[in-house]
Simulated assay, not measured.
Amino acid sequence: MSNSGDGASARRLTPRGAATKARIIEAANQLMFEQGVASTTLADVRTASGTSKSQLYQHFADKDALVSAVIEFRAEALLAQQRRRLDKVNSLRGLELWRDDMVERNALRDGAYGCPLGSMANEIADHDQAGRELIATHFDEWLQMLINAIDRLRTLGVLRADADPQTLAIGLLAAVQGGYLLAKTTRDVKLMRVAVDIAIARIRAFSAESSTQN
């Protein structure tokens, strides 16, 4: 996958140029959500963003470079939202509030389009190695946020010492992705809630409170 430009060229952008680049990325992101990566052409993006061919190629050498920019655009928004929620988790109720926020956001489109990152991974992973690796780095970051949240619960004594944050976080992220897919297929976000609830129930099984009651 080609790069859209080095740091020096990015710094040379005028405010007008930066605004044009942002408009192209936002248009490409919306089109790729609605009709998929493969079906989105550079001509489509030019029309949707109101830019010329020369303007588009000034910022992106080819479609691969634009796809890379869209991945980064989505990751920045998604992971910022995840971080805001997960950094506040200090109880099992906090995990439920994190779940509620994701399900409610997904319900705004009745589950359509799925996970912003997962949907792109489904499209490009088998034929775009660079794109797959880029998405993988962002999934690693997301997974680490979940690991940190669960480890925090263990440190605070909410969970027992034998709870494995990495294993539980992998199960939780897998449930989120499966839930996104089920909601996308059925247009029913309740299925996403059920999938994530099962993973949270697994974490709850390590509750220090429940162990003292047995």
Rank of each mutant, 00 (worst) to 15 (best):
M1P: 12
S4M: 13
G5H: 06
A8C: 09
S9I: 12
L13Q: 13
P15H: 07
G17P: 00
A18S: 13
A19G: 08
K21D: 00
I25P: 05
I25L: 03
A28N: 11
N29P: 07
Q30H: 11
L31T: 05
F33C: 10
V37Q: 12
S39Q: 15
T40R: 03
T40N: 03
T41P: 09
L42V: 11
D44E: 09
R46P: 11
Q55S: 14
Q55Y: 03
L56M: 09
Y57T: 02
F60G: 05
D62V: 01
K63P: 02
S68P: 08
S68I: 05
A69G: 05
A69N: 04
V70W: 07
I71D: 08
I71P: 09
R74M: 10
A77D: 06
A77P: 03
A80S: 15
Q81T: 13
R85Y: 06
L86A: 02
D87E: 12
K88S: 15
N90K: 15
S91H: 09
G94F: 01
E96G: 07
E96I: 10
W98A: 00
W98R: 00
R99C: 03
D100V: 04
E104G: 00
N106M: 02
A107C: 01
L108F: 02
L108A: 00
G111K: 03
G111Y: 04
G114S: 00
C115V: 02
C115D: 05
P116G: 04
L117N: 02
A121P: 02
A125Y: 00
D126T: 13
H127V: 10
A130V: 14
G131D: 05
R132D: 07
I135Q: 02
F139T: 10
D140H: 10
D140I: 01
E141N: 13
W142N: 14
I147K: 11
N148K: 14
I150L: 12
L156G: 08
G157S: 06
R160M: 12
D162F: 05
L168W: 06
A169F: 07
I170G: 00
G171H: 01
G178W: 00
G178V: 00
G179S: 04
L182R: 01
R187C: 00
R187M: 01
D188S: 07
D188Q: 11
L191Q: 11
I200C: 04
A201T: 14
I203M: 05
A208Q: 14
E209Q: 15
Q213L: 13
